[in-house]
């Protein structure tokens, strides 16, 4: 039986009827067409589905949509404004931290959460901050450099 949930996604309020066995990742992608959030492993290993839930980054493939009732969700679509893309996105582009791009939204959401909590992370803190996100193309060096360039 579907349940009605209320949640905020990228500062927009939503009222949605969801099946209990639907994950947050699937709700975002299939119901709301927010396909910036990717699905890689679907078991919490790869981090491609990372979104920020009530201020903390989580694997949206391991959260049931019904569990997000009353929550505040941030996805990669919420980052850009009328003035253009977000500084994190700009840094990733400028440093060539994107190859195939599949891990990028998850990497960027982990980076946002890291910098929101700690604007000046150490090398170790940067590495830990993206340790839940797997990239199979670049070997992380350019991703690391992009985040490093954003330190205040």
């Amino acid at each position: 039986m579907k349940k009605i949930i209320h949640l905020t996604i990228n500062e927009l309020d939503h009222e949605i009827a969801v099946e209990p066995n639907k994950t947050l990742a699937d709700l975002l992608r299939y119901d709301l067409k927010l396909t910036g959030t990717k699905k890689g492993c679907d078991t919490g290993d790869c981090g491609a589905c990372t979104v920020i839930m009530n201020g903390d980054p989580v694997n949206s493939c391991l959260v049931l949509a019904v569990q997000t009732n009353g929550s505040r969700i941030e996805t990669v679509e919420g980052l850009s404004t009328d003035e253009g893309i977000h500084p994190i996105q700009k840094a990733f582009v400028e440093k060539g931290a994107i190859q195939c791009g599949y891990c990028t939204p998850g990497m960027i959401m982990s980076t946002k959460s890291l910098l929101d909590k700690n604007p000046n992370p150490s090398e170790q803190e940067i590495r830990e901050g993206i340790s839940g996100n797997l990239c199979r193309c670049t070997g992380y060096t350019k991703i690391f450099e992009a985040i490093e360039s954003l330190r205040s």
């Binding site: 919490g44 839930m53 903390d56 980054p57 901050g129 340790s131 839940g132």
Partner: peptide, 9 residues
């Protein structure tokens, strides 16, 4: 345990 994403849940 796991990754920081897992530890948040």
């Amino acid at each position: 345990i796991g990754t920081h994403l897992i530890r948040n849940r």
